[in-house]
Amino acid sequence: MATDKTNLQLVVNGILNENPIFRLVLSMCPAVGISTTVMNGFMLGIAVFFVQVCSSCTIALFKNVIHPRIRIPTYTLTIATWVTVIDMILAAYLPEAYARMGIFIKLIVAFAIITMRLEMFASKESVTASFWDGIGMGLGFMFGMMALGFVRELLGMGTILGYDVLGFKPLLFFVLPLAGFFCVGLMMAFFNYIEIVYKRARRA
């Protein structure tokens, strides 16, 4: 049951049609908790990207020897392995980023998006397709996190990537975790609106 999409379509699919945050609404806890700045979103996005690609490839490679009864434990084991590897690499080569992100990196094990992608896609498709799907999902997650981080950092602290762009703090509320939900909701509505407009324009 191979997918009929091309590699490029798989990547775009992850970023737009099935964006993990705005469309699939998965892994909301980290999205809300960490996306306070663009940089945080980017760092976690990178980590999730690697874990997703590595896990997708691993599962796609071994899909025929994974017993169907224990597939979820196997997925968790795979994800946990790659998370540990990423964790060690970050701790060794990016100690400053690790000091801030360390605790969240370990949480990636429990991210719904990765398990869901392994179950829905990688366990049925070829390694190549899973690789591109992983890239799409990882980029989609990174894009979502950075978009959220952009809005929240700009409105909450008046800065972008730590540089002061507004010179004042419009709404401190947006830095708080609670505002993450508002932000996700508003941006979801925005993306849905764009899609409706786009479809209407195409029909006409």
Partner: peptide
């Protein structure tokens, strides 16, 4: 299979 999977994971880590 779980044992093999765990061993492989341990090796990678």
């Amino acid at each position: 299979r779980l044992t093999v999977a765990c061993l492989l994971a341990g090796l990678v880590m």
